[in-house]
Design a binder for these strands. Structure first.
Lengths: 199, 199
DNA sequence: GTCTATATAGCGATAGAC
DNA sequence: GTCTATCGCTATATAGAC
């Protein structure tokens, strides 16, 4: 494995685990098995290393394919997308990434916020909107404002579990979390259909 | 003003503005107009000062009265609650507090997460649930699972503006934000009623 | 109780040798 | 390209005088 890649892998892990301030360049160098100056020679400074690491995480977390459901009617398609999206959102990687980004976005410090808004949530909104538009065109849904409905759907999916995990109120075993996420996904799809299914 | 109170006020402002790591005890002492040792003599260490400051902020942000709408039918009541809640959620104080909490909730460090989950979002959920239960009893709404509907309603209210502000994608003037929040509030109430109004 | 001055430690970034 | 050793800075927390 190239040293550059080893550094990037170490950075991805440590930044997501301990955030920007909580991760020292010494720690990254140690985790990657290189000296600190090697890190600097590859990435310039801490900021650029952070950008690269978080960007890579974001792109892997919500792949485009997640929004391509394969057949079975509108309810089944929504359930499939919802489950995949919700699972990704409560994963340890996603929670860590969110924490790292939010921690970094202090007032006069737009290091990553806009960039990652576009690569993360905004991309999700656009893809979801695209899916809903097709469903509306096919007569499977009746939606007055498709863009807003896409945002609403994804907001419903996060429910309270995403927030609870973000706040660190876990304690629960993974099995409990999965069950609660599943119940919330089903409820979200049901509500969405109650509101937007053709009458 | 007592020095203890002056210290607490300075801490509330600085922690919410710059987060835990970004706020030095020197800065708190300077802002409060006392020496650093005075801060330590009153609050012991940085952790306890942080707890007190954030807790005070949370309690002021979402007062119980916010969920007591005064007459005018279910749509008007929901609109009133929704607007007040959404306004509170995108305020600079709320965004700063969220950032401070999330930044602080790293893996093995449950300093505030659970405590503030209960004093913030969980209290909001409970109050909203109470309101919805009354509406269901009065025949104004038809909801299969009231607790989940409360969570759904509050999730809809945050929409994407809360997240965009959290990520620091503001740039917009305050007027634009207010207009977008208003539009999102109306859309949220409409969708909620499409799903849960008696047919 | 309150202050000034300081101990101790960890950080990002760099100098100079190989 | 890579290393060891170090500079300069800032932070938390404390010692000792008033």
């Amino acid at each position: 494995m190239g040293k550059r890649l080893a550094i990037l892998e170490a950075a991805k892990q440590l930044f997501v685990q301990h955030g920007y301030e909580g991760t020292s360049m010494d720690a990254v160098a140690a985790e990657a098995g290189v000296s600190k100056l090697t890190v600097y020679s590859h990435f310039g400074d801490k900021d650029r290393l952070f950008r690269e690491a978080i960007r890579a995480r974001c792109q892997a977390l919500i792949p485009d394919a997640l929004f391509h459901a394969n057949g079975g009617g509108i309810r089944a398609a929504l359930l499939q997308i919802a489950q995949a999206h919700a699972d990704a959102m409560v994963s340890a990687e996603a929670i860590g990434t969110w924490r790292a980004i939010v921690s970094d976005c202090r007032e006069g410090n737009p290091r990553l916020g806009q960039l990652l808004w576009e690569e993360g949530p905004a991309r999700g909104h656009a893809l979801m909107e695209q899916f809903l538009e097709a469903a509306v065109a096919g007569g499977e849904l009746d939606i007055p404002d498709v863009h807003r409905a896409a945002v609403q759907f994804l907001a419903l999916l996060k429910g309270d579990m995403h927030l609870r995990r973000l706040f660190g109120c876990e304690g629960d075993c993974l099995e409990t979390i999965e069950r609660e996420v599943r119940a919330n996904v089903v409820a979200a799809v049901e509500m969405f259909l109650r509101a937007y299914a053709p009458r």
